[in-house]
């Protein structure tokens, strides 16, 4: 895959925000500062990456990285059959990113998922509420400091007793 032309143009256009461009195993990865994600993705969309294949996040707590969280966008161009990975770094103190829902509607639910599981907020998202966990759920389960077995959520229910056949053996 030859995306070098695109990446040079990107670096020219956004010199301050693109931190690193790497190419490995035919995969181009862009690393950038989170705040400019909307402009970069708009640029890429106009360039032919018409399909947001996946939007997810990684908690870099023990992995190490520029910031605590990485939000990963997998873009796909149907026409040229190319993929590009865009990584936006978000800090722990201010986990806030611009929403890309205006570019792709699919980002609506995926950003809600990232919000639910990682606690990263998306600016100007139409409906940023929990999607997978119950509304009253406390904490963000996919963060590395959340225990796998939870904090007692799964034990917190009333017990429904058997009503009639109580003494059956």
């Amino acid at each position: 895959m030859d995306l070098s032309d695109l990446t040079t143009r990107l670096q020219e256009k956004f010199p301050d925000t693109v931190l690193e461009v790497s190419e490995e195993n035919d995969e181009v990865t862009l690393q950038l500062k989170g705040s400019s994600i909307l402009e970069i993705l708009s640029f890429l969309k106009a360039d032919g990456f018409n399909f947001l294949a996946d939007l997810t996040a990684v908690d870099n707590l023990t992995l190490g990285g520029n910031e605590r969280f990485t939000v990963v966008y997998h873009l796909l161009s149907h026409e040229r059959v190319e993929r590009i990975v865009v990584k936006a770094y978000v800090s722990e103190e201010k986990p806030l990113l611009p929403s890309v829902e205006s570019l792709w509607k699919t980002a609506d639910w995926q950003e809600r998922e990232v919000y639910d599981l990682f606690g990263i907020e998306f600016e100007s998202h139409p409906n940023l509420i929990r999607i997978m966990n119950p509304d009253e759920f406390n904490g963000y389960p996919l963060r590395k400091d959340f225990p796998r077995q939870g904090r007692g959520e799964r034990k917190d229910f009333p017990i429904v007793e058997r009503m009639t056949r109580g003494d059956r053996e």
Binding site: N133, P141, F146, R148, Q149, G150, I159, T164
Partner: peptide, 30 residues
């Protein structure tokens, strides 16, 4: 009433392989 309950499969009976924050470890608790 009268009613009976079958717990089918490992997950409903004990949580199965899903020992995670969101899966009930056996519906018979509740």
């Amino acid at each position: 009433e009268p009613k009976w309950v079958i717990s089918m499969g490992a997950c409903a009976s004990s949580g199965g392989v899903f020992d995670t924050y969101s899966v009930i470890q056996g519906v018979d608790q509740f």
